[in-house]
Design a protein around this nucleic acid. Structure first.
Lengths: 126, 126
DNA sequence: TAATTAAAGACAAATACAGTCTTTATTATC
DNA sequence: GATAATAAAGACTGTATTTGTCTTTAATTA
């Protein structure tokens, strides 16, 4: 569970979709102006959200993007995982074979963070 | 609280110091062979631990490094902070002025991880 | 004074991230 | 069927961070 700028964009984008739930498809250009991101960069992030089945897209005239699931089912974790994957923050590459006690503590710590992100839903903050 | 390879080295180094507590100063070369890190790179990490007052160093013949505090007082957090500082993992740069609700959730999540790292001591795992 | 040790800082290579540009594929409308 | 509007894909560049090396300087003991 690492974070980049794209993570932040994705979370803000999803929050916007949750706010606009029920309205028409949102297309790239208006979204880009509203979020103040370049359309091409935004496009890459949206494509990742589509692949993770959080939103759906339709090309062509009147196309755009819209939520795929009920808004109550979308956690912070879901969104971040869509962008960053689910790799651990910390990996010990020293004691290759045997279990590393340090890694264990670090993973347990990260798990507490992740659990919080699984509990919190996007609609909790719109 | 971000992590790099240097974080992992530092934690393993401190674990070794805790194990060796009470023995003579450990100097760079033996430490480097034991940890399998290049001496010059190790030196940079040790210098950071010295600056954070976790260990102390003495130059010259029979010099080296040794623990600065009672081993029961050294948390994972202390070590990581010495290497990485205490910057947050996640920062929202969008809503410059007003508080960002997304950032709030992310910071709360991180805090749970950090609290775990403050509770766990190095001597717990040696 | 010489030998041993740590500290500091310049430097290089590798990696990851942010962001742009161009081309292709799909859909609706005329 | 042609055209316009839209998303998807992929190559590419610039920048920042991290890892690691090398060289020089400073401190301490014998």
């Amino acid at each position: 569970m690492k974070y980049t700028k794209a993570t932040n964009y994705a979370l803000h984008i999803m929050a916007y979709f949750v706010k606009q739930e029920g309205k028409d498809n949102l297309s790239l250009q208006p979204l880009a102006s509203h979020m103040d991101i370049s359309p091409t960069y935004l496009s890459k992030i949206l494509t990742q959200l589509v692949k993770a089945d959080l939103i759906q897209s339709t090309p062509g005239v009147n196309g755009g993007y819209s939520l795929r699931k009920p808004k109550t089912e979308i956690s912070f974790y879901d969104v971040i995982q869509a962008i960053e994957g689910s790799g651990a923050l910390f990996t010990c590459e020293m004691d290759e074979n045997r279990a590393c006690h340090i890694e264990k503590v670090m993973r347990d710590a990260e798990e507490k963070m992740v659990n919080h992100l699984k509990e919190k839903r996007i609609y909790n903050i719109v």
